[in-house]
Design a protein around this nucleic acid. Sequence first.
DNA 1: GATATACTATACAGTTCTGTATAATATATT
DNA 2: AATATATTATACAGAACTGTATAGTATATC
Lengths: 192, 192
Amino acid sequence: MYTRIMSALREKILNTATDLFQTRGINSTGVDTIVAVAGTTKMTLYKYFHTKEGLILEVLNKSQQDFQSWLDNKLNTNTKAPADKIKQLFDFIEEWITSPSFLGMGFIKASAEFPNEENPIHQLSSKQSREFRQFISKLASEAKIKDADGLALQLSLLFEGAVQAEQMKRGSGAIKYAKKAAKLLIDGAISQ
Amino acid sequence: MYTRIMSALREKILNTATDLFQTRGINSTGVDTIVAVAGTTKMTLYKYFHTKEGLILEVLNKSQQDFQSWLDNKLNTNTKAPADKIKQLFDFIEEWITSPSFLGMGFIKASAEFPNEENPIHQLSSKQSREFRQFISKLASEAKIKDADGLALQLSLLFEGAVQAEQMKRGSGAIKYAKKAAKLLIDGAISQ
DNA sequence: GATATACTATACAGTTCTGTATAATATATT
DNA sequence: AATATATTATACAGAACTGTATAGTATATC
């Protein structure tokens, strides 16, 4: 993990961009808007981020890191037995989705705004989705589940579907049903 | 009376826009590009569609109608018993997703590009997602499933998750596992 | 043949966008 | 006090975007 010494202003720009990209869309948010909301100027933005694309990529990376760190922490402090982590996964996902600060999943929106598979932003989104699926697969493996990859894929579909539903309509309640479905799939995979 | 058929050019513009929106993104596709690819001029485009937003809304509506018609037809010609339709639903969804002409789901991408819930395009996307879920719920009801709405929501999550996965990486194979999960959920809901 | 209609060609107004150039100001270090 | 660094203020080049104005051409209908 490349930890970077970050100036307060750099971080402010990054956080502002994250928020604006989520609430207004990436292509609909100009750098002028970002610097105005962040309370700085374009010169400073372009000092820290060489292009808007570079800023987008960093926003996506930071968002994913923050989410993954939050989830790791939840799983490690609340659960001792590795076999239980997969069972509690959707409890924490529910907590995350229903949190008032939830604004959506970066890589899901980004991949829709940049549908071309050659595009670096699309490629990063795709990579993040794959890595999150692998993370679930690792949890399933540690829980001694046979078809860990298969279950992980199914759970990731429920996850992305629930996020999608919540992005479309806040307070959709989709995660409640995703959780039930996940429980059923996990129990089925364990008893195999 | 005089039967008013849709002008060939209007349809050409609509189809071209549908394709370009899916492959390049909506905000990244200018009207100049659309008319160039469609082989016409901006004057003609703005004759049939008053604004770009109007064009986007029509594209979304037509895409959803086309998909729903295709699916209705598949379900009605291949299945007689209403109780079997829900079981075959994901077979046809798989056929649709794995088809070479699959470019994604309009309302999923649109809602990501226009995340603001006040936006007419976002609202239409949300409505289409809700209506598709209601369509699944109707299938579940006709199959005498008790918690039809609950199952429909879960299946729609798998559906949107699988579409999302396929939009991110063509040939992901996600639909195969979505199908398995759907079967499990349907069987579980039937035996209640 | 005259006329309405559909469509093209082209230019352009006005806005917004990314990215840079240039000069001034504040802050920290020596 | 002198100097390097960070940041601001502002203007602007150049491109892309939506939407319109205007004039000309093709085609079908009367």
